[in-house]
Design a protein around this nucleic acid. Structure first.
Lengths: 238, 238
DNA sequence: CCGCAAAACGAACGTTCGTGCTATATTGCG
DNA sequence: CGCAATATAGCACGAACGTTCGTTTTGCGG
């Protein structure tokens, strides 16, 4: 879970002089927004510069190459993901509650549109899975991290005696992740908000089936999850 | 399941004269291959022309715009999908056997790399879900078709008394599709062949749980699915 | 207040993109 | 065999791409 601090030379030098770091952060904020909606390749330097009302060259100097910009953008997105998903879910005690929290917060993170284009990494993975390179490697590594977090949480829930110990953590992590990505996919493509309820129901069903008697109380009660997830009977989005 | 025959004027005129249609088909064959791996936007006219050793303009004349080329490519990919997945699965009698067949053949279709970049429509959906337009609409419609086929097969299995009639067909279709897409995603990003076994196991588990006594015989027996799916203990790909 | 490095700029580079226009092969039919 | 329709090629366009270069602005330390 440690960020591979690359090019520390530059970063250290910039820590003293504050100006560069500030704009760099502003650039990355806009970059993440654009890239999440239009893809990391659709994130063009000219477009980004125009968005921030600065020159291409001035912006470019912060990164040195497009690939470096993409990598920095991925890293920024990861920071947001950790802040918005992993950290909140880790407020729950380890075990089934945290495992469910990871799934629940993740679905919320897509529904709340933390990134305009849904899950940043789902999009980035689909975009880069065909072309080798540093970006693809980094994205794959981050997704492996996420699956590992899920898998570890499964194992912990087993360790706490809340989940059937015969279940394979990696297998369950795969299934939970697939259901979440499925919801993201359906929402992005069809604007289908129902997909969240579907994924939630499927995840809960799966977890309930595997939960022990001690585990069950750590899952939301049968009726529905948290507060009023049924939409106010309005029109669908999109 | 009918193809919305657009621009029939041209197509009809071309049906008589055979020459254009032949090269057009050759173009689309290459286009599908490239697009599946590098995306429908990465499918560039110059690249495509070079691949076929013909001029940009000569190729371009067949479609009139890039968007038309993309749409034609999507349509060609759909034809392949129908031929390689839907049709074979429909050899099985309607009911649980066919439902399982749809899932099984789909996983095979990704594993066999019918398209170089995995499921063509998963990639196209991820690429275009953010940008409105005809391509996005068509891709979304095709995916809706697929989900409808899955859902209808669930309903038929219920009609045959092979599946728990209280299950929601759309919900189950969502789950099965999510698991399949999850396998595609894992294989594309990590080259993880195990993902197929994972998805297969999850799908089977889900279907077995919902199957009635009459339904169960239509699913593969406990041990494993069809012939020897365990890899020959060799290295992983990629 | 000066000096100097960091930061931002403006203009241009060479490519490649999609898309026109015009001319030349190639073909099927009368 | 010749003519008209079709198919492909050649060439050029304007725009946008990532990138480089030399210059100007900015702001802190001495």
């Amino acid at each position: 879970m440690t960020v591979p601090a690359k090019s520390t030379e530059r970063a250290a030098a910039r820590a003293r002089r504050a100006h560069g770091e500030r704009t760099r952060q502003a650039i990355l904020e806009a970059a993440v927004d654009i890239a999440s909606a239009e893809g990391l390749e659709g994130l063009t330097i000219g477009r980004l510069a125009a968005e921030l009302s600065m020159s291409k060259s001035g912006l470019f100097a912060h990164f040195g190459s497009k690939e470096e910009l993409q990598l920095a953008t991925v890293e920024a997105a990861r920071d947001i993901f950790v802040r918005e998903v992993v950290r909140p879910a880790f407020d729950a005690p380890k075990g089934l509650a945290r495992l469910w929290g990871l799934c629940d917060v993740w679905l919320e993170y897509v529904r709340r549109e933390v990134f305009r284009g849904g899950c940043f990494f789902a999009a980035a993975a689909a975009e880069f899975d065909g072309r080798p390179g540093a970006v693809r490697d980094r994205v794959a590594a981050i997704m492996k991290e996420w699956l590992a977090v899920l898998g570890r949480s499964v194992a912990e829930a087993q360790g706490e005696g809340q989940l059937d110990p015969s279940a394979d953590p990696a297998q369950l992590a795969f299934e939970l992740n697939a259901l979440e990505m499925g919801a993201n996919w359906a929402y992005q493509l069809h604007g289908d908000r129902q997909a969240f309820a579907r994924a939630r129901a499927a995840v809960l069903e799966r977890l309930r089936r595997l939960a022990t008697a001690e585990g069950l109380p750590h899952l939301p009660s049968q009726g529905q999850g948290k507060g009023a997830r049924r939409a106010p009977r309005g029109k669908r989005k999109r």
